[in-house]
C-alpha cells in the first residue's frame, strides 16, 4: 500500500491544473524570497545543503517497513524536510523533489505538477511544518515536544494531502468526492501512522546522534504565551475540520466501493473500526457521526503521544 498522491496528467481538468500551478508558483515565490533573506541563514552554502538534502528525501522515500503482511509503512518526508531545513526551505526542497519525480521518473504528471507540488509541498510541507512548530511551541518547546509535534504534523500532513488530492479530482469531475474522500482519507490515515512513526524515529535518532546539527538547522523562534494559545486554537480548528471531513463521509458508498477496489482489507485494520459505520451505538444520526470522527482523531493522537513517550524514554536511557 503506497501513498497515492502523485496525480498523473489526464485526471485533473485544465482549469484546476492551472489554478494549482498558479497557487504553487505564488507560494514557492514567497518561499524563495524567505530563504533569500539574509536573516534566514543566507550564504552560498544554503542551496548546496538544500540540493543534497533533496536527494536525501528522494532516497529516504525508498525506506519502508512491514506493518502486516502485504502492508508497509512509507515515508513521504515533507514534515521531516521542514523540520530539518525550516518550513520555507523545506517546502522548496519538497516541491523540487516532486518536480524531479515528474520530469525524470514520470511519477506524477507535468500539467498536474502544480497540484502535486501544492498537495505535497505546500500542504504537506509548509502547512505540516507550521503545525509541527505550533504544537511544539504550544507545549513548551522542549526537544522531545518538538519531535512529538513533528510526528502529529506528519500524520496530519499525509491525511490532508490525500484530502486535497481527492477534492481536486472531484472538482475535475474525475472522482466522486462522497465516495473517494472517505476511501482516500481512510487509507492515508493508516499510511500517515507509518509516516509519523518514521519521522519521530528519524528525528529522535538525529537528536541522539548529532544534537548540534539538529539545534543548528531546526530552532523555531520562542513565542509569547498569547501566540502559543493562538497557534493551539488554529491547530484545534484544523483538526476539527479534518474530523468533520471524516464525519461528513458517506459510509455506505465507501463500503460498496471498498469491496470492489479491495480497499476494505486496508480498512479493516483502521482505528475507526472501533466505531462501525462511523457511528457510536447509543447516539443517533449526525451527532453520533461527528462524535465518532472526533473520537477517532483523539484515539490517533493519544496513540501518537504514547509512541512519542516511548521514543523519548528510549532516547534518555
Amino acid at each position: 500500500m503506497h501513498p497515492q498522491l502523485h496525480i498523473p496528467d489526464g485526471f485533473l481538468s485544465p482549469q484546476i491544473s492551472l489554478l494549482l500551478w498558479v497557487a504553487s508558483a505564488v507560494l514557492l515565490g514567497a518561499a524563495v524570497r524567505k530563504t533569500s533573506r539574509s536573516d534566514v541563514q543566507l550564504n552560498a552554502s544554503q542551496p548546496i545543503l538544500m540540493g543534497v538534502l533533496g536527494a536525501f528525501i528522494f532516497a529516504a522515500q525508498m525506506f519502508n517497513f512491514p506493518v502486516a503482511t502485504g502492508t508497509s509503512g512509507h515515508l513521504l518526508g515533507g514534515v521531516l524536510a521542514g523540520f530539518l531545513l525550516g518550513p520555507w526551505a523545506g517546502t522548496i526542497v519538497m516541491a523540487t523533489v516532486v518536480g524531479i519525480q515528474a520530469l525524470l521518473f514520470q511519477d506524477g504528471g507535468l500539467l498536474a505538477l502544480g497540484a502535486n507540488m501544492f498537495n505535497m509541498g505546500i500542504i504537506g510541507t509548509l502547512g505540516g511544518s507550521f503545525i509541527a512548530r505550533g504544537i511544539g511551541t504550544a507545549l513548551g518547546g522542549s526537544r522531545g515536544v518538538n519531535i512529538l509535534g513533528a510526528g502529529i504534523a506528519a500524520w496530519l500532513a499525509v491525511v490532508a494531502a490525500a484530502g486535497f488530492t481527492t477534492l481536486q479530482l472531484g472538482l475535475s469531475g474525475t472522482t466522486n468526492v462522497a465516495v473517494g474522500l472517505p476511501a482516500m482519507l481512510g487509507v492515508h490515515a493508516l499510511i500517515g501512522i507509518g509516516e509519523a512513526m518514521i519521522t519521530v524515529a528519524a528525528l529522535t535518532f538525529i537528536a541522539q546522534t548529532a544534537p548540534d546539527i539538529l539545534s543548528g538547522v531546526a530552532s523555531p523562534p520562542q513565542a509569547s504565551p498569547a501566540r502559543r494559545l493562538a497557534t493551539g486554537l488554529v491547530i484545534a480548528g484544523g483538526v476539527a475540520s479534518l474530523a468533520s471531513l471524516f464525519a461528513s463521509a458517506d459510509p455506505d458508498g465507501l463500503e460498496a466501493v471498498a469491496e470492489q477496489l479491495g480497499f476494505l482489507n486496508a480498512g479493516v485494520a483502521a482505528p475507526f473500526e472501533l466505531f462501525p459505520d462511523y457511528t457510536i451505538p447509543g447516539l443517533d444520526g449526525t451527532t453520533s457521526t461527528i462524535a465518532a470522527g472526533v473520537l477517532g482523531i483523539i484515539v490517533v493522537i493519544v496513540l501518537l503521544l504514547a509512541f512519542a513517550r516511548i521514543a523519548r524514554s528510549r532516547a534518555k536511557s
Binding site: F63, L75, A201, A202, L203, F205, A311
Partner: peptide, 10 residues
C-alpha cells in the same frame, strides 16, 4: 520496525 526504519532514515 518503525524505529529501525527511522534510524536508517536518520
Amino acid at each position: 520496525r518503525a524505529r529501525t526504519t527511522g534510524s536508517l532514515v536518520g
